[in-house]
């Protein structure tokens, strides 16, 4: 277990370094002069020069890199070229809204998908109830294929425009959460439910399920105690990817609902060429994904005693 922790921490550090370097490198990979691009072709050359100097863009690359690392350690992300606000403040203003959205959607997706997938697996095992199986697989395939922002648009149309049940945009009061959270959760819930079903079907074929039946345990215990934990180990691996994807989904859904989170901010900043803000948010997203992967691996190690991660 200690070995696992050390190795995993090592991998986290390497990935973290890659993410930081990518965020740093991003600005330097932009063809042309990002400052000129941000200020527009009509800006006077002195202003561009002064801004370049202020951003340290004229220093040698290695020095800029060291400065960047140093600033990160001190929590200094630079400031927005547009509003002049410190990037750290922009992020701390916007981050909670995004985290709320992502977490609420993830929880909803889990609450829907695990019981649904398990129930479908039990109901359709060994080729029973073919029609139900077909309905489930096709419906979930379509839902899984729909991109979040289209779901969001559809939800807005049905529930805000037609029925007038939910506000169309913004983040004010509990009912403003309903549509964005559902829009984000539907796709992952469909994917996860499919995975849970397939994994459970595989697990139900396992010898230890036959053993559990040979022990004459009630079905409830066979499915919940013996099948579910095994089905979940595979589900968690993919669930982590899905949670990561959920972060990406927030970008689009926030824009549909004008949700004041990181996603709407990064898009407007990209369009305004406000690179310090973009850089800061990219870094946050990157770290977010890394943290999710870490949590997934820990969950796996705890749930699956054989876990290869734990052993190696």
């Amino acid at each position: 277990m200690h070995r696992f922790a050390i190795r995993r921490a090592g991998r986290l550090l390497v990935s973290l370094w890659v993410v930081i370097t990518a965020a740093f490198g991003m600005i330097h990979l932009i063809p042309g002069d990002p400052v000129r691009a941000a200020l527009g072709p009509t800006a006077p050359a002195e202003l561009v020069q002064a801004r370049r100097a202020a951003l340290g863009l004229d220093d040698p690359l290695w020095l800029q890199y060291l400065n960047y690392l140093h600033h990160l350690v001190t929590g200094e992300f630079g400031s927005s070229t547009l509003s002049g606000l410190p990037v750290a403040q922009v992020i701390s203003d916007r981050l909670p809204a995004t985290i709320e959205l992502a977490l609420a959607s993830f929880v909803l997706a889990i609450l829907i998908s695990v019981p649904l997938g398990l129930a479908m697996a039990v109901a359709t095992r060994n080729g029973r109830r073919r029609p139900a199986e077909l309905a489930f697989t096709s419906a979930s395939a379509v839902l899984a294929a729909l991109p979040e922002f289209l779901v969001a648009v559809g939800l807005v149309y049905v529930f805000s425009v037609t029925l007038g049940w939910a506000p169309v945009a913004g983040r004010s009061g509990p009912d403003s959460y309903v549509l964005p959270v559902i829009a984000l959760a539907i796709g992952p819930a469909a994917v996860l439910a499919r995975i849970v079903r397939v994994e459970t079907l595989a697990v139900l074929q396992a010898d230890y399920i036959r053993t559990a039946r040979a022990k004459r345990l009630p079905s409830r215990l066979i499915y919940l105690r013996h099948a579910l934990p095994n089905a979940l180990t595979a589900t968690i691996t993919l669930g982590g990817l899905i949670l990561g994807g959920l972060i990406a989904g927030t970008v689009l859904v926030e824009n549909v609902f004008a949700w004041p989170g990181l996603g709407s901010t990064i898009v407007s900043s990209i369009l305004a060429k406000d690179y310090p803000v973009v850089q800061g948010i990219v870094l946050i997203y990157g770290i977010g994904v890394l943290l999710i992967n870490l949590v997934v691996d820990i969950a796996l190690a705890l749930l699956d005693p054989r876990s290869t991660i734990r052993k190696s």
Partner: peptide, 24 residues
């Protein structure tokens, strides 16, 4: 190894990242 790290990131985030580099 680099590919393995990149695969862990959702496609849309990567696309946003590269959209910054390659321009709108």
């Amino acid at each position: 190894a680099a590919v393995n790290i990149a695969v862990a990131f959702p496609g849309l985030l990567l696309a946003l990242f590269f959209a910054v580099i390659f321009g709108v």
